[in-house]
Nucleic acid binder design. Structure first.
Length: 282
DNA sequence: TCATCACCTGGAGA
DNA sequence: ATCTCCAGGTGAT
């Protein structure tokens, strides 16, 4: 196996993309929609509870080409050299959608807790690999959930977002399969019409579950990164607050500069900066 | 259009 | 111990 195709599970799973993964007896197990995945590092092996091949790790991406392309930027190249096994993931869209709605103004620990409780309360129990798991709930389950039950999962003010957002999917107002096919800009507009979704959350959903590799989520960390390493390149944009118009013009410049795989660039930069400022966020 | 603020909750630091 | 502050934002004013 070539070095650039080698996926590092620890690094990838601990890169802020997913929240429902645990290492059990040295083997990673995670919830992806209705399936449970069991993933071993060496030799690399993915087993799904649904006994179907999984493309969760985007094994179809041409990493040689992508890494080569994004490495034309020196900072990104450094990050790629440091974390060559980092990958974007291809998540179940509904789970990703709800996960990042829950992420607003919260910490990773807290997000994990909320999502775990949501699964336990609303998801189907699955026995797999000798362990007990809870799948991510069906759309209908969350769309019809009581606000009270959602609150008991620790969602707080996000409970109403989750309920409403699930209803939008259930009613057919929002269609993930359509968003996958349509272009970045219009998919993003559709997502942002959902109660509880702004620019940052929309970009996470687009990048992590809807095949939009040019999405570049800008949060506090990304802002810090842009200010630290790219203040000259994006002069006049990043020191302002992230207003609606400003976010859009930054993103435009970002795609101009980082290219069509800007989302991959973001993931590497993000990982490097988080690691640099490492505290207790695992 | 733009800045400020409240918001559930849990953990860290004073 | 109790309090304040803040965390990978969003919506309302």
């Amino acid at each position: 196996m070539q070095e650039f195709t080698r996926i590092n599970l620890d690094i990838t799973i601990n890169s802020g993309q997913v929240f429902l993964w645990d290492k059990i007896d040295g083997v990673w197990h995670g919830v992806n929609g209705t399936e449970i995945l069991r993933v071993k590092q060496d030799p690399f092996e993915i087993i799904s509870s649904q006994k179907k091949p999984s493309d969760f790790f985007r094994q179809d991406d041409n990493m040689e080409k992508i890494l080569n392309k994004i490495s034309s930027d020196n900072i990104v190249r450094t990050a790629v050299e440091r974390f060559p096994g980092l990958r974007l993931l291809r998540q179940d869209p509904f789970q990703c959608y709800i996960s990042f709605i829950c992420s607003s103004n919260s910490s990773i620990q807290n997000i994990k807790q909320m999502l775990k409780r949501i699964c336990q309360k609303f998801g189907k129990k699955i026995d797999f690999d000798g362990y007990e798991f809870f799948a991510f709930p069906a759309v209908e389950k969350l769309a019809k959930a009581n606000l009270k039950d959602l609150l008991s999962c620790g969602l707080g003010f996000r409970a109403k977002y989750v309920k409403t957002a699930a209803m939008s999917v259930h009613s057919g107002a929002l269609e993930f399969n359509f968003l996958k096919k349509t272009d970045y800009k219009s998919a993003k507009e559709d997502l942002k019409n959902i109660y509880g979704i702004g620019n940052k959350v929309a970009d996470c959903i687009l990048l992590f579950s809807l095949e939009k590799l040019e999405a570049f989520p800008i949060d506090r960390w990304t802002q810090r990164i842009l200010q630290k390493y790219y203040s000259k390149k994006f002069f006049g944009l990043i020191e302002k607050s992230l207003t609606e118009k400003n976010y859009e013009s930054i993103h435009k410049k970002i795609v101009e500069y980082f290219g069509p795989y800007a989302g991959y660039s973001q993931q590497f930069l993000f990982k490097m900066e988080r690691e640099l400022n490492k505290r207790n966020w695992l």
